[in-house]
């Protein structure tokens, strides 16, 4: 008998009682509404992300960093002040040596101050937003949702997803949050402002 048969057989023998349980979902559900930009900004700042609101992204990026920026292949080039290092299958050491990475995002959650990347062409492979010490993420206001249920509803499960809430941090020393361990120690979020506003 294989271990698979052994374990499944044990599970079946162990079970008694009801064959399913109804789940009360009386919590706030996904609403489909656009989330509060002000709340998102407050929550991002609370977890030590730097937030910019800009209609001129390239200028804002130039104000944050000079030097080599690695970008995913589908990035909006108008966001970049200089010629970037475009990822395809760049080796890790070249990505790690970059001064920063610029990506878009799939969704942002106002209530938790979270941005989620899903590997789309404007967000790229997971490695590029991981190794550089600076991550600049450009967000459109329409990508903001209020809470976690809306984000889960919008995301596509099969994609590689990275949920990011502030820069890399740890609570391992005396249970106090300290920013800056292995992931990017600097997280900047640029929220696009429409030209006419």
């Amino acid at each position: 008998m294989s271990s698979r048969d052994v374990v499944l057989g044990r599970i079946r023998s162990a079970l008694s009682g009801p064959s399913s349980v109804d789940v009360p979902r009386d919590y706030r559900p996904a609403s489909g509404a656009v989330g509060s930009l002000e709340l998102l900004v407050e929550r991002l700042v609370d977890y030590k992300a730097v937030v910019h609101r800009s209609s001129a992204v390239a200028e804002t990026v130039a104000g944050i960093v000079s030097g080599t920026l690695v970008v995913p292949p589908g990035i909006d080039r108008s966001w970049l002040p200089t010629a970037p290092l475009v990822d395809g299958d760049l080796p890790a050491d070249r990505i790690a040596a970059a001064d920063g990475v610029v990506t878009a995002a799939a969704v942002a959650i106002a209530e938790t101050g979270t941005i989620v990347l899903d590997g789309s062409p404007d967000q790229g492979r997971r490695i590029i937003s991981l190794l550089p010490d600076l991550h600049i993420c450009v967000l459109r206001p329409a990508q903001i949702v209020e809470g976690v249920p809306d984000a889960v509803a919008r995301l596509v499960p099969g994609r590689p997803l990275t949920w990011i809430s502030g820069p890399s941090a740890t609570s391992d020393i005396e249970l106090n949050r300290v920013e800056g361990v292995h992931g990017p120690r600097n997280l900047h979020v640029i929220i696009l402002e429409e030209q006419w506003s």
């Binding site: 959650i109 209530e111 101050g113 949920w163 809430s165 890399s168």
Partner: peptide, 8 residues
């Protein structure tokens, strides 16, 4: 409110 990183 949310941990810094969740990977799926």
């Amino acid at each position: 409110r949310m941990n810094p990183y969740t990977s799926m």
